[in-house]
């Protein structure tokens, strides 16, 4: 019996979220095996060794040149059978969610999305996020194989106590034409997903209804620039058309985990909190001392953002000289 993890990669190797999924998988106790689809770089192999992976199954070839969820699922199912997997999991990214849902159907398995912890292994009982993370559901995942996705930032990506020397093997996957019907036929360059910057930013300055309108973001933007950060906003702000949707932080926007989040004029509705609660430090600026965002924050300034932010920006510029 093993735990199979679908590993996503990026320019730096194993994606941070997949590192979290691998750490979660180790906690289940069974040997962890990784499935990598597409290119397998040395950086990825070496990081998988650090994460304590016992074997790497590598699926590559024409069927995986552009993304098709069903083709990925074909690879997951092939790897699950080859590794006698008791648990198959991925990070709760768009690709991870989609590939796991396809795989669950094909494996005749139940799936638990956005898992935050395993309560027991036999039977497989997990706690997972529902209602945007404001409620946890304890769920029993019945069947021979449990399919899970691990909620982003539910655990930290931590290397194993000792690195392993994973056996690397090529996974033979037969991908029928029917699995390539729904595939990415092209990507459009020149219009990058601005929320990518939001997710990776060290500092995010947030704006809510309290900004007052589309013209109320000048001081926010300046503070973000002074701190090398980016602007994030609430759903109200994008619904009113004050800022583009790509900047939305929340249950239906981006989930961020910066070193510092500075929500300005944001009351802290659950929908928004779901997207920003992973920030390491929160400094709220709000006129209401009892706003949820203020009581949940680490630090707060009570006052009008249009008076407080110019003073902060001024002080930052003054110290820079």
């Amino acid at each position: 019996m093993s735990t199979l993890v679908l590993v996503e990669t990026d320019a730096d190797g194993v994606a941070e979220t997949s590192g979290e999924a691998l750490t979660f998988a180790r906690g289940l106790g069974d040997p962890v095996r990784a499935l990598v689809i597409g290119e397998l770089s040395e950086a990825v192999t070496s990081q998988l060794s650090d994460y304590g992976v016992e074997a790497v199954h590598h699926a590559n070839g024409p069927a995986f040149e552009t993304y098709a969820a069903a083709a990925w699922a074909a690879a997951v199912v092939a790897a699950a059978r080859e590794t006698d997997a008791g648990v198959v999991l991925a990070s709760g990214t768009p690709r991870g969610m989609e590939a796991m849902a396809h795989s669950a159907v094909r494996l005749g398995a139940s799936m638990a999305a956005n898992t935050v912890e395993a309560v027991s292994r036999h039977p497989m009982v997990v706690n997972r996020q529902v209602l945007g993370g404001s409620v946890l559901e304890q769920m029993q995942v019945d069947g021979d194989i449990a399919v899970l996705t691990v909620a982003g930032h539910a655990c930290e990506a931590v290397p194993a106590d000792a690195p392993t020397t994973p056996a690397i093997s090529t996974l033979e996957v037969e991908v029928p034409e029917s699995d390539l019907i729904a595939k990415v036929v092209r990507t459009e360059p020149g219009e990058p997903d601005e929320s990518g910057g939001l997710k990776a930013a060290r500092v995010v300055v947030g704006g809510g209804r309290g900004t007052g309108g589309p013209d109320g973001f000048g001081d926010l933007t300046e503070l973000a620039e002074l701190l090398g950060g980016v602007v994030g906003v609430t759903r109200v702000v994008t619904s009113l058309g004050w800022r583009p949707h790509a900047e939305q932080v929340g249950q239906t926007g981006s989930r961020i985990s910066p070193e510092l989040y500075i929500p300005c004029g944001i009351s802290g509705a659950i929908q928004h909190w779901a997207g920003c609660s992973s920030a390491k430090t929160i400094l709220a600026i709000n006129t209401e001392a009892d706003a949820p965002m203020v009581t949940k924050a680490h630090y707060a300034v009570i006052g009008d953002l249009h008076e407080v932010l110019p003073a902060i920006n001024e002080e930052l510029r003054r110290r820079r000289g």
């Binding site: 995942v141 001392a289 006052g303 407080v308």
Partner: peptide, 24 residues
């Protein structure tokens, strides 16, 4: 497969108020 729902306990507020208005 739901066993039950759990509300994560509301953490007691630990906010440190740095000040009021521009003086902060």
């Amino acid at each position: 497969g739901r066993i039950k729902l759990v509300l994560p306990p509301a953490a007691p507020s630990k906010v440190e108020i740095l000040g009021e208005g521009p003086e902060a």
